[in-house]
């Protein structure tokens, strides 16, 4: 986590830029526009660049840059490096920016694929790998707002802290925490392959609320018991391949990295 040493953002309206790369059109923040807070937000910050509104987006120093989408061209790569240089704080928002999203589903940085094969046998890749990578494959990201769409309460909690020059609070618990607070019956008890314990909370347990298993889209909970969780799901009759494919299907490749490491 970077320190926001002595930047009193609250003094002036913080200068904010919003940028969209492949997969998103810079509209994640707008998707949640139905909330009252979005109006307050636009009053509290000074939006300097908005990728859809401005043709020449990066021309000055920024307090906060919100970046959406994954990086899949050389041009985008150069663009993100420039944004990083100009922004004190860079926030990756949405799954594409955070984990690569569906575009990165089969991202074959070949070595990774090979290692996967070594560890888990031959996993069939359905399509040829695309070069789509999350923002943090190229530049340092200060904060993440995962999800597709992102969660409004989580986004506002983070943005409001940045407006006040304070360090945002991460949600350090697995999805199961929120799942229980929403009074859902645990799907694992019915032998449904839920990834809640391996996944960082913050989504409000959106999937289990509808009886659907968590597929890990919020990214890894680094305290997850990756090793035993896989064994548990195998005991439900799933093969390791099927399990891995499930995770990969939803931009969970950061979770895969943990599995590969055998957890912590």
């Amino acid at each position: 986590m970077t320190e926001i040493s002595n930047t009193k953002l609250a003094v002036a309206k913080p200068k904010v830029g919003i940028y969209g790369f492949t997969g998103c059109a810079g509209d994640q923040l707008l998707i949640i526009h139905t909330e009252d807070e979005i109006l307050n937000l636009f009053n509290s910050v000074d939006i300097r660049s908005f990728v859809m509104a401005s043709s020449n987006p990066i021309e000055e120093e920024l307090d906060v840059a919100f970046v959406e989408g994954s990086i899949s061209t050389e041009e985008e790569r150069e663009h993100i490096l420039k944004i990083r240089k100009r922004a004190k704080i860079l926030v990756a928002i949405g799954n594409c920016a955070v984990s690569g999203g569906p575009q990165a589903m089969f991202t074959g940085d070949n070595t990774f694929e090979k290692r996967m094969n070594k560890v888990y046998g031959n996993v069939n890749f359905l399509t040829a790998p695309l070069e789509a990578k999350p923002i943090d494959a190229f530049v340092e990201v200060d904060y993440y707002l995962p999800g597709c769409p992102i969660s409004a309460p989580q986004a506002f909690a983070l943005i409001s802290r940045l407006i006040h020059g304070a360090i945002p609070e991460s949600y350090p618990h697995p999805v199961c925490h929120e799942c229980k607070l929403n009074e859902n019956r645990c799907l694992l008890l019915d032998k449904i392959a839920c990834f809640g314990p391996l996944t960082m909370g913050g989504c409000g347990s959106a999937c289990p609320n509808h009886g659907l298993p968590c597929v890990g889209c919020w990214g890894p909970n680094d305290d997850g018991n990756f090793e035993h969780h896989l064994e548990l799901l195998e005991s439900f009759g799933k093969t390791r391949e099927e399990i891995l494919r499930l995770i990969r299907g939803y931009g969970g490749h950061k979770i895969l990295k943990y599995i590969e490491k055998g957890g912590k």
């Binding site: 618990h173 697995p174 199961c176 925490h177 645990c186 314990p197 997850g224 018991n225």
Partner: peptide
């Protein structure tokens, strides 16, 4: 400890 998922459900219930 090897099998605990640290899901916290036990404390909630």
């Amino acid at each position: 400890a090897k099998i605990c998922l640290s899901c916290g459900q036990c404390s909630m219930v």
